[in-house]
Lab assay of single mutants.
Amino acid sequence: MFKRLMMVALLVIAPLSAATAADQTNPYKLMDEAAQKTFDRLKNEQPQIRANPDYLRTIVDQELLPYVQVKYAGALVLGQYYKSATPAQREAYFAAFREYLKQAYGQALAMYHGQTYQIAPEQPLGDKTIVPIRVTIIDPNGRPPVRLDFQWRKNSQTGNWQAYDMIAEGVSMITTKQNEWGTLLRTKGIDGLTAQLKSISQQKITLEEKK
């Protein structure tokens, strides 16, 4: 169930391209415009997507990853294993993690069937560096609404905000991946996880038929 919630949630996290980005210092504006741009692209490019579902990787690479804190999220997933990894191991892992996100997020976007969304009203940021933004996803086919909290983090150097995690039903996506990959990290280390991520990233994206 959580895996499905995570995939549905990713439908609204794909941010804007650099040329049309919203105010990078306001995570609420980023979330709002990102959702609108993403849904528009999914709707307008269905012919290309249906002809070649792996085209979704391109959308992810162009529109999402430049505005997601990939390395920060990847380091959180590694936890204690990050500090013990060599620079070469980290570089290989982050490259594999990025390719994994292209496949995983692309597969999530393949679930698009006309969903709509509501974003919580903007709250004062103050001096906060981590801000959760509640998004409610509404399914046109009558499924119950899904309420999610996207975690946005302020870059201490640039002042810009980027998304790095999502919490559904009190469970963090980062925590879920830590639990899912924990045994592999304990037995085969970061190299074993890197190899698995490379394998997963090679899987073809498949479209979910409308139910």
Rank of each mutant, 00 (worst) to 15 (best):
M1H: 01
F2T: 02
R4A: 12
L5R: 00
L5V: 04
L5N: 02
M6C: 04
M6V: 05
M6Q: 01
M7R: 03
M7V: 06
M7E: 00
V8E: 00
V8R: 01
A9I: 12
A9M: 10
L10P: 01
L10V: 07
I13S: 03
I13K: 01
I13R: 01
I13P: 01
I13H: 03
A14Y: 15
A14E: 05
L16Q: 06
S17D: 08
S17W: 09
A18I: 14
A18S: 13
A18V: 13
A19F: 03
T20E: 07
A22D: 11
D23L: 14
D23M: 09
D23A: 09
Q24N: 14
T25P: 09
T25E: 09
P27K: 01
P27A: 09
Y28S: 07
K29V: 12
L30Y: 06
M31K: 02
M31P: 00
M31Q: 07
D32N: 07
D32L: 07
A34N: 05
A35C: 12
Q36Y: 15
Q36E: 07
Q36V: 13
K37N: 10
K37W: 07
K37C: 06
T38C: 07
T38P: 05
F39A: 02
F39P: 01
D40C: 12
L42F: 12
L42W: 05
L42K: 03
E45K: 07
Q46F: 06
P47V: 12
P47G: 10
P47R: 10
Q48L: 11
Q48C: 06
R50L: 07
N52V: 07
N52P: 00
D54L: 10
Y55E: 09
Y55C: 08
Y55T: 12
R57C: 14
R57E: 14
I59V: 12
V60W: 01
Q62E: 13
Q62I: 09
E63M: 03
L65T: 09
L65K: 05
L65W: 12
P66C: 05
P66F: 06
Y67Q: 04
Y67G: 03
V68I: 14
V68S: 07
V70R: 05
V70P: 15
K71Y: 05
K71P: 06
K71G: 04
Y72C: 04
G74S: 07
G74A: 05
G74D: 03
L76M: 05
V77E: 11
V77K: 00
Q80H: 10
Y81L: 05
Y81H: 12
Y82D: 02
Y82Q: 01
K83M: 07
A85M: 10
A85R: 04
P87R: 07
A88T: 10
A88H: 14
A88M: 15
Q89R: 06
Q89G: 09
R90V: 03
R90T: 06
R90E: 03
E91L: 12
A92T: 15
A92G: 11
A92D: 14
Y93T: 03
F94L: 07
F94K: 12
F94R: 12
A96R: 06
A96G: 12
F97G: 02
R98H: 11
R98P: 09
L101S: 14
L101W: 15
K102I: 14
K102W: 12
K102G: 14
K102Y: 15
Q103R: 05
A104M: 08
Y105E: 01
G106D: 04
Q107F: 12
A108V: 03
A110N: 15
M111K: 11
M111G: 03
Y112V: 03
H113V: 12
H113I: 13
H113P: 09
G114V: 06
Q115D: 04
Y117L: 04
Y117P: 05
Q118K: 14
I119G: 08
A120L: 13
A120Y: 14
P121R: 08
E122G: 06
E122A: 02
Q123M: 08
P124E: 13
P124F: 11
G126K: 14
G126Y: 10
G126N: 08
K128S: 14
K128A: 01
T129G: 10
T129Y: 10
I130G: 03
I130W: 04
I130K: 04
V131M: 09
V131S: 10
V131N: 13
P132C: 02
P132E: 05
I133K: 09
I133R: 04
R134A: 00
T136Q: 12
T136F: 06
I137Q: 03
I138V: 07
I138R: 15
D139G: 13
P140A: 00
P140Y: 14
P140E: 15
P140F: 11
N141D: 07
N141P: 06
R143L: 03
R143T: 04
R143C: 02
P144A: 00
P144D: 02
P144Y: 07
V146F: 07
V146T: 06
R147I: 05
L148W: 06
Q151G: 07
Q151C: 03
W152D: 00
R153P: 00
R153F: 00
R153G: 04
N155W: 02
N155D: 04
S156E: 04
Q157E: 07
T158Q: 06
T158G: 08
G159K: 14
G159E: 14
G159D: 13
N160Y: 13
N160M: 11
A163I: 15
A163L: 10
Y164W: 05
Y164F: 02
Y164A: 07
D165W: 02
D165L: 00
M166L: 10
I167T: 14
I167G: 04
A168C: 01
A168V: 03
E169N: 03
E169W: 04
E169Q: 03
G170N: 02
G170Y: 02
G170M: 01
G170W: 01
V171P: 00
M173V: 02
M173W: 02
M173E: 04
M173N: 01
M173S: 00
M173H: 08
T175W: 11
T175I: 00
K177H: 14
Q178F: 04
N179L: 03
W181Y: 11
W181V: 11
G182T: 15
G182F: 12
G182Q: 11
T183N: 06
L184H: 07
L184P: 07
R186Q: 00
T187S: 13
T187V: 05
I190Y: 10
I190S: 03
D191T: 08
D191I: 06
G192L: 09
L193C: 04
L193S: 03
T194G: 08
A195N: 10
A195R: 11
A195S: 11
A195D: 10
A195K: 10
Q196A: 06
L197W: 14
L197I: 04
K198Q: 13
K198W: 09
S199A: 02
S199D: 14
S201H: 09
S201R: 10
S201D: 15
S201N: 14
Q202H: 12
Q202A: 03
Q202N: 10
Q202P: 11
Q203C: 09
K204W: 10
I205M: 09
T206S: 11
T206L: 13
T206D: 14
E208I: 10
E208C: 11
E209Y: 12
K210Y: 11
